[in-house]
Design a protein around this nucleic acid. Structure first.
Lengths: 123, 123
DNA sequence: TTAGGTGCAAACAATTTGCCGTGTT
DNA sequence: AACACGGCAAATTGTTTGCACCTAA
């Protein structure tokens, strides 16, 4: 855990936002102006590999990072890309897995909507 | 529907495979060698926009395209990236949507596993 | 003193775009 | 003539990598 990795990790832990690498880079540079973009990507990759954070692949947009360690669904605004965590009702996906007969190693569930802010703006 | 768009569309309809733009480009060029890569991307975009096909965003890999018109879950091999369609049990996601109180405009559900071929190869 | 990490810049992969020509209505 | 689309190549975007230097165990 170098200073730079700690900084990046702290930024992710500090808020429930699901930020992009670029946003994290900007926030981190406010604190450590010498920080390189490559270092951000490298450390995000390592944090994901070690299971300390999660990477969310977004549709037609840069990936976002989630401080939550366990798999859970997300609610994504189709307009602005904002992401919220959802709670997965216990055993919700069981019927699907059951039907498969094979073990599932993970899942990715996103629900799309238009967030209140965007819906208001659309008027 | 130009010749090139029809060709691209036919390739997608012809098989249940979920191919990448590059794979579609290669298959199409076997039939029409002058076809440009940009044309493939342009037409895939239009076909998606018009709801004739679906785009599947993959984790750390190029997007794939699905001939199925309606939303449905996918089973993705973590090793080789192969994608299969799944059938979503009726009303499976209702509890989630219910809990939200807001309308959901769509969803994206992927289950990850190791496909039989890859599991065998791992021995 | 050596393994791992950094900053920097160049490289990359997937996709998009501008431009200009061409076939169709 | 208007126009949508194709081919081509250059541009963009998001991300990765090679390299030389540095630093903490």
């Amino acid at each position: 855990m170098t200073r730079q990795r700690q900084l990046i990790y702290d930024i992710i832990l500090a808020a429930p936002e699901h930020r992009t690498a670029e946003e994290i880079y900007d926030l981190a540079r406010a604190e450590m102006p010498s920080l390189a973009r490559g270092t951000v990507y490298r450390n995000l990759g390592l944090l994901v590999r070690d299971g300390q954070i999660r990477k969310l692949e977004m549709a037609d947009a840069p990936a976002r990072y989630d401080r939550e360690r366990e798999a859970h669904p997300h609610l994504v605004c189709q307009r602005c890309g904002r992401v919220e965590d959802l709670v997965l009702p216990e055993g919700l996906l069981d019927p699907l897995e059951k039907g498969l007969g094979e073990p599932v190693t993970g899942y990715d569930l996103k629900l799309y909507h238009i967030c209140p802010a965007c819906r208001k703006a659309a008027n």
